[in-house]
């Protein structure tokens, strides 16, 4: 009970405040913009056809209501929250009148599936390989690996992605260029394997880049840990190599690594714009890019709200996990 009060509650309130502030900013920002979405929509409509002024007037009211722009700013703010809690993020402006939540809902499974799997794979690979390279700096294989990752790391991600697309979709047409799957959505081997097939290149591009980053991070963390007295002492006592790597080195580097993992997972709700655009993958990163091109700020803000909640929740979970990872972190 005391633990709940002194450890859990302050962090939970911090989480709430972060979301409150973030969402308030998403409410204020578009209202400071010089463009008026209602006028914009009206002008788009009236450029296509001549309209009766009275019809225009009533349409304007309907649009203001739809975009939550009716009433005083305070009423608007209250209504904004009410709608958010209902899960109503307003209509998309580019694909009017499809609700934003539907667009996000369609893209989310693709993005989450792609990112969760690549984050975990690259996290585990990076830590294991990086720790080995840091622990055995004289080993030939570790040195080769080190050189490879150090050369991959500075390559800008979009170049890496473009090289993959050019090589394996265009010159050697091994992988498909567009989409997340082929065939009818159903639980069957052919459909599931087509998901894997379509995601192979985007996943590879993500794994290569972030494994290189985590490899370098794990190697740097390891180099400080292996200079510590407890590793030397364990070596003096003749402890086996795997026991030292697992329980003495990796275990002690886990705190920053878990933070990195948590925040990476939290960031998946904003998608990976470059990956999804380059590989034409139907996730929310792609939707976000389309939204940006068409000034669809309901969609942009909807994705932003998701990502605010996602990152704040990830930070909360990471924070709550610290005492499990390092007994020296106090519950205070």
């Amino acid at each position: 009970m005391n633990l709940l009060k002194s450890y859990f509650l302050p962090r939970l309130s911090q989480w709430l405040i972060t979301i409150l502030v973030g969402v308030t900013v998403t409410f204020i920002l578009p209202r400071l913009l010089p463009t008026d979405p209602v006028e914009r929509t009206l002008s788009t409509l009236s450029s296509l056809q001549t309209m009766d002024p009275r019809a225009v007037e009533s349409l304007k009211e309907a649009l203001e209501d739809l975009y939550g722009l009716g009433g005083s700013p305070f009423e608007q703010y209250i209504n904004y929250w009410k709608r958010l809690i209902r899960g109503d993020l307003g209509p998309s402006m580019s694909a009017f009148p499809t609700p934003v939540i539907e667009i996000i809902g369609a893209g989310l499974p693709w993005t989450v599936g792609l990112l969760i799997s690549t984050i975990f794979i690259s996290w585990i690979l990076g830590i294991i390989l990086g720790t080995l390279a840091g622990y055995l700096p004289k080993n030939l294989w570790c040195q080769i690996m080190d050189k490879i990752f150090i050369s991959i790391y500075p390559i800008p991600y979009y170049i890496l992605a473009l090289i993959l697309v050019m090589s394996f979709c265009y010159h050697f047409q091994v992988f498909p260029l567009v989409g997340g799957a082929s065939g009818k959505p159903e639980i069957s081997w052919s459909y599931l394997s087509s998901i894997l097939w379509h995601s192979f290149l985007p996943a590879t591009s993500l794994i290569v880049g972030s494994t290189a980053f985590r490899f370098i991070m794990a190697k740097a963390l390891t180099s400080t840990i292996i200079a510590s007295d407890y590793v030397h002492y364990a070596e003096t006592a003749g402890l086996s190599r795997w026991r030292i790597v697992l329980f003495y080195v990796i275990r002690n580097t886990l705190l920053p690594q878990a933070t990195d993992l948590g925040l990476s997972i939290g960031a998946i709700f904003s998608g990976t714009v470059i990956t999804e655009v380059v590989f034409s993958y139907p996730g929310i990163g792609y939707s976000l890019y389309m939204g940006l091109l068409q000034a669809d700020f309901n969609l942009i803000l909807g994705i932003t709200v998701f990502s605010i909640v996602g990152i704040a929740t990830a930070a909360l979970l990471v924070d709550l996990s610290y005492p499990l990872l390092d007994p020296r972190v106090r519950y205070k």
Partner: peptide
């Protein structure tokens, strides 16, 4: 066997 200097840091802090 060996009793090291400065036992402050010879025990793994997370074990």
């Amino acid at each position: 066997s060996y009793i090291p200097q400065g036992s402050m840091h010879v025990l793994n802090p997370v074990r």
